[in-house]
């Protein structure tokens, strides 16, 4: 199967083609490793867990941001075009710069803020209210798909903020809403983030829900 990969060596950017013998059940990540180990050792990409939980391997496959390790080669159209994520600066080949991404994450105070002490109880219902939003693996797919993320917070930090706001153990909701009130209005509801999220977290919905909360919160002031 033919792969077209977007290369960048620090100065020059170009397409390169590779032919990879495909086996049943092969993922795009395995194909990338095949290329690196057999055809061109200079190909750079990130990967770690190869089971869709670490978030290292997001790239654009045929235009859509996806996890390379979770994408079956057999389900793709030939030639398979692989490019680095959009809205990130490319360091090398498929490797993009995530420093800014994690800095944005920090802005929303993504940790449990809690002054009370003593035993904590949380019922399964309370857990369910926020649980799915804890599943964000911070792969950057949503940021790549969003047409406005480059100049604003983007979807990922908002999901994190929502996850803590909805946690019954948390006492920092107001702080976070205050921070979000500066950022949350940039969204244009393109909802592309929800389309590409590999964990189906629906960031677009979360943003809209939080807008209403930020609004309610600001009105009280």
């Amino acid at each position: 199967m033919r792969f077209k990969i977007r290369r960048f060596d620090g100065e020059r950017s170009y397409w390169q083609e590779f032919d990879v013998p495909v086996k049943r059940g092969m993922t795009v990540l395995e194909a990338l490793y095949y290329i690196k180990e057999n055809l061109d050792p200079t190909l750079s990409f990130r990967a770690s867990c190869r089971m869709g939980v670490c978030g290292s391997c997001a790239v654009r496959i045929n235009g859509k941001p996806r996890l390379a390790c979770e994408t079956q080669v057999s389900k793709l159209k030939e030639p398979v075009k692989i490019e680095p994520l959009k809205n990130f600066n490319v360091i090398r080949d498929l490797v993009t710069d995530f420093e800014g991404f994690f800095k944005k994450h920090e802005i929303v105070k993504p940790y449990l803020i809690r002054k009370s002490e003593g035993e904590i109880r949380q019922t399964p219902e309370q857990l369910k209210r926020y649980y799915i939003y804890t599943l964000c693996i911070k792969c950057g797919a949503c940021m790549s798909a969003c047409p406005v993320a480059k100049n604003c917070l983007g979807p990922m930090p908002v999901v994190s903020a929502y996850r803590f706001n909805e946690d019954s153990r948390d006492e920092g909701k107001e702080e976070r809403l205050k921070i979000l009130s500066d950022h949350i209005w940039h969204c244009h509801f393109v909802a592309e983030c929800s389309e590409v999220c590999p964990k189906d977290l629906n960031p677009a919905e979360v943003i809209q829900k939080l807008r209403l909360e930020v609004l309610k919160f600001s009105m009280r002031w």
């Binding site: 244009h188 509801f189 629906n202 677009a204 919905e205 809209q208 829900k209 807008r211």
Partner: peptide, 14 residues
């Protein structure tokens, strides 16, 4: 349409 969504409504029917 955008206003409807921005008030948090009808997301599932987007």
């Amino acid at each position: 349409r955008l206003i409807i969504h921005e008030f948090g409504f009808l997301y599932r029917h987007r």
